[in-house]
Design a binder for these strands. Structure first.
Lengths: 336, 336
DNA sequence: CTGTTAGCGCGTTCAC
DNA sequence: GTGAACGCGCTAACAG
């Protein structure tokens, strides 16, 4: 660990290896052929002097920052954390570093984040969810490649990594129907959020396809937070609504729901069956464990990172499918 | 939004404002006095041309990257996520950007992360938890300031932001004792982890101070993951151990514990009282809601960021206290 | 294949 | 106060 004042430049290793600085630059970037002996000499010098390239000089000269921005929405859901984790994983063994900024699901903040990233001259960005509009994204993509995760944007799909929320909700609802349920309530997420809407639609379609009338009075609109699941149940009872099952747009609300039910002395799944969405870690350890729809969050994160890398390297990227999987646990029971 | 090929340099705004580049540099950095009129002229030019400083050039010339590295441990706990959130929050309105890398609680990976950050020439780093040894940290701190969160390192405390785990565990245990419990089991975390050890010690001391004998057979060693809480309960029963309360070293294990109890038909809190640690979001929505010890995670994150900033600005930093708060919920009941 | 040279955009002495 | 000139460390033409 010769850490001598970290002032080692390519000039020094050039001298040490008795070659010119450009030769050094060449072996370091691998952009051109260099005689084997000189090649080794340089590598030896690099090791001997414990050389560390200066990112600034490199960036200044090449125009590349070897950095890609990540706009996350660090709020209200373990789902997004899992995606971030997947992204970080892929960055681990790549020459790129992630520059993470928080968008907080606020358009204004996300735009500021975009500016920050632009100032930092990132080579590309990954947008996780959020509200940034298509045009903003496209404009940015003009000069810096953009990839979007966990969001399906019309007219930009080739750059989006997402899962079919409609189908997933359809499947979850169908599962309840097949278990004999006919009065299935749905607690939706924020309808401004596309995912929430798609899940509602999937629920609706499954009902229709099973010849069960879709009833507005079985729908309660939540906001993805646990508290709203709790309130939703109260709303249902206030309406004097009967139901034998509830499909929640996410696990967090399902947790709130389960708690509300518990407080009213209603047993899950004996009295009411319950299905959530996201398979967040705690779901498996609820009492009873929650049946839920698991989106491949980490996998999607990995795909996103892989996608942006292939764009940066101008390599082809073969799209992947990311489908949700229903995780059946004790919170659902057959209706006799 | 004049986004003209983003080639605007200080030279151009110098021309536009009819001054020299050094004057421009001066008003931009505010390091020297400039005549009011020129000052304004420059500002106007900056706005008119939508100037954006080039971080690389700036970094090259100044030696500052305006970036601080953050080593997180993105695994197994919402607690660390909350800290990260707090950190990001403070970065938001600072000229610095965070460079986040994942340490995964693996010493080797953390060391690599340190190297990455060094190569990126960060101006400082925040280490969240992890296993990096004191000497490594101190060596790094020699040239780049280091702040550690959620970890208390002997001989480096002035740079650590942490909470008193011993005291918190003591209080939690005492709460159970005062509720009349005498046979209190403890499910510990990984003992290699200082926090786990401190919590165990706090538990022990509370017992001793209340004249209740500390019994090894009431201790089960877990690993912080929910699954281990579940297994711990099984272990207790295998030992044929009786107990009226359980104190878990974190919420995740408490969740596993609660599930195991539920499956055995044991009611919480009617038959057994339960206390966790961390107050992770889902805890409030368990059935029944979990009593837990809440560490000020986000606050600690914010403090850490504030601390590193004040070091970078060579400003004094006044340390803060970060104490845990017991959140009493339905999972504990009095023993008659 | 290799060495020489000219910037990349900005901070920072210096003289004025 | 202000401007001119140099250099930060490296990449990318350019000649050989």
């Amino acid at each position: 660990m010769t850490n001598q004042r970290e002032k080692i430049t390519i000039q020094q290793i050039a001298d040490y290896a008795d070659v010119s600085i450009s030769t050094v630059s060449r072996v370091l970037s691998g952009n051109a052929k260099v005689a084997a002996d000189k090649h080794e000499a340089v590598l030896a010098a690099v090791k001997a002097l414990n050389y560390r390239p200066n990112m600034f000089a490199r960036g200044l000269a090449s125009g590349q920052s070897m950095t890609v921005g990540v706009i996350t929405q660090h709020i209200s859901s373990p789902f997004y954390d899992a995606i971030t984790k997947g992204i970080l994983e892929v960055f681990e063994d790549s020459p790129y570093s992630p520059l993470i900024v928080d968008g907080q699901w606020k358009l204004e903040i996300e735009k500021r984040a975009l500016h920050t990233l632009q100032n930092r001259q990132v080579d590309g960005i990954i947008v996780v969810g959020g509200n940034l509009e298509l045009e903003t994204l496209k404009a940015f993509d003009q000069h810096t490649p953009v990839v979007v995760v966990a969001r399906e944007i019309e007219d930009f799909k080739e750059r989006c990594i997402y899962t079919d929320n409609f189908q997933a909700a359809y499947n979850a609802t169908q599962f309840l129907i097949r278990a004999g349920h006919k009065e299935i309530a749905h607690i939706s997420g924020l309808l401004e959020h596309p995912d929430a809407n798609l899940r509602l639609q999937g629920y609706k379609q499954a009902l229709i396809d099973a010849n069960i009338p879709y009833r507005e009075d079985l729908i309660v609109h939540g906001n993805f937070l646990p508290q709203s699941g709790l309130l939703a149940v109260e709303a249902l009872f206030t309406r004097n609504q009967t139901f034998s099952a509830i499909f929640c747009a996410n696990d967090q609300m399902a947790m709130g729901t389960q708690l509300a039910l518990y407080r009213r002395g209603i047993r899950v799944p004996a009295d009411v069956s319950l299905i959530g969405f996201d398979d967040q870690p705690a779901s498996a350890f609820m009492t009873p464990p929650l049946t839920t729809m698991r989106p491949p969050a980490e996998e999607m994160g990995r795909s996103a990172a892989a996608h942006i890398f292939s764009i940066l390297k101008k390599m082809p990227y073969e799209a992947q499918d990311h489908t949700c999987e229903l995780i059946v646990r004790e919170s659902v029971s057959r209706v006799r």
